[in-house]
């Protein structure tokens, strides 16, 4: 019984040390710290692109595809917040973080357009105007994917 307070103190100290180490690990926007958010955004834009493809081929509904685009937008928002929380100390780190945020912003814009186009495509992709709109947002999504991919390659993130 007498050991229990001491044991609790040791456990608490260990937890504080682990939390401190973990909190201190990801403060700088190095390629490692950016890897998680960048991969999350890369996955999100690819998923939205697949949803648009499926909508163009009439394999999915407007509701399911726009829900996917909306969910992906949420993922990009959370990844953007994560990158914003990183504090850049050198000019190089600042540039890398700004480039990543710019790429995220392009993805975010493309996803917003995709969500709007998918929501308004309830008449079905056979409607010519709807199909053209979906093809346009598909192009935008692919361009945003390429921009992000090339940045990730350049920064050694993937």
């Amino acid at each position: 019984m007498s050991k229990s307070p001491r044991f609790r103190n040791v456990v608490l100290t260990l937890l504080v040390v682990v939390a401190g180490v973990l909190a201190g690990c990801s403060q700088q926007p190095s390629a490692d710290a950016l890897k998680g958010p960048a991969e999350e955004v890369s996955s999100a834009v690819r998923a939205a692109s697949l949803a648009v493809d499926l909508r163009i081929s009439d394999s999915t509904t407007a509701a399911a595809a726009s829900t996917a685009a909306d969910d992906m937008l949420g993922d990009v928002e959370s990844a953007t917040k994560e990158v914003h929380a990183l504090s850049a100390q050198t000019q190089e780190e600042r540039t890398l973080r700004n480039d990543v945020l710019a790429a995220f912003s392009s993805v975010s814009r493309a996803l917003l357009h995709a969500r709007d186009a998918l929501s308004s495509s309830s008449n079905g992709p056979s409607d010519g105007q709807g199909k053209a709109q979906l093809s346009t947002v598909q192009g935008e999504l692919r361009a945003a994917t390429e921009q992000l991919d090339s940045l990730m390659t350049k920064a050694g993130i993937q």
């Binding site: 999100a44 690819r46 998923a47 697949l50 009439d58 394999s59 999915t60 509904t61 969910d71």
Partner: peptide, 29 residues
């Protein structure tokens, strides 16, 4: 089969439905 090669990691239920829609269309969905 569908998501891993496309570089998509599942974070939402809407993504879980994508392979099924791709395979069987709106009926499967």
């Amino acid at each position: 089969v569908v998501l891993l090669p496309a570089g998509i990691s599942v974070t939402s239920l809407s993504q879980v439905a994508l392979p099924v829609a791709q395979a069987g269309g709106q009926l499967a969905l």
